[in-house]
Structures are given as C-alpha cells and as structure tokens.
C-alpha cells in the first residue's frame, strides 16, 4: 500500500467519476443510469478515504463522512428503484427515451 502515491487514488476517483457521469448522461436504460450515479458517489468515497489517509491533515473524519455518504447512497438507490418499479408497472418500459409524456 505504502508504495502507491495518493495521486493514484485521486486519479482513480476522478476517472470513476467521469465514467459515472458519462454513463448517467448517455445511457438509455434507467437501471444503468442509476448504477452510474452510484459509481459517481463511490468515486467520492474513494476521494474521502484517500484524503483521510494521505491528505494535508490526515484524520478520521473523512472515513466518517464516507460512511455517511454510503448510507445515503443506499437510501437514494432504494427510493430510485422503487420509483422505477412504479413507473415500470404503468409503462412496461425502463427506457429513458420513452419518458416523454410532458412536452411543451
């Protein structure tokens, strides 16, 4: 572990975040979009844990923040999937392109 510099972890987090953002903005399947959002949130967790070990002033707070972020991400995923279920029951589709009932 000690041989890996902090910048490697930060780059990993940044790349994961960008993959997540790209997926969330381009994918057509809502489930994949929700997964991509989770990816973005987990990139943040990597950042927080890295900073809590290698940051300017390393301390435990970053890991505590990461724990809170994880539990909130779980709640978000649960509500997101529940809403997707309700939508699927009415529309029989999880395709984002078909969510176009409201247009001006």
């Amino acid at each position: 572990m000690s041989g890996v510099p902090a910048s490697a972890f930060l780059s990993l987090a940044l790349i994961l975040f960008c993959i997540g953002l790209y997926g969330a903005l381009t994918k057509r399947n809502t489930v994949i979009v929700l997964v991509s959002i989770e990816l973005m949130l987990n990139a943040v967790n990597i950042n927080l844990v890295t900073f809590s070990k290698y940051g300017m002033m390393p301390n435990i707070t970053g890991q505590v923040f990461a724990l809170f972020a994880m539990s909130v991400a779980a709640a978000e995923a649960a509500v997101g999937l529940a809403i997707l279920f309700a939508l699927y029951r009415n529309k029989k589709s999880v395709n984002i392109d078909e969510m176009d009932a409201m247009k001006n």
Partner: peptide
C-alpha cells in the same frame, strides 16, 4: 406523469448530489 417526473427528479438529484 407523476411517476415520470419522480424518475427525472431522482436522476437529476442523484447526479447533482454526486
């Protein structure tokens, strides 16, 4: 409409949170 707007809100809200 309500389902759809909730789904859009979840996706946008999730991205903005991240």
């Amino acid at each position: 409409k309500s389902n759809e707007s909730a789904m859009k809100y979840v996706i946008n809200g999730g991205i903005s949170t991240a």
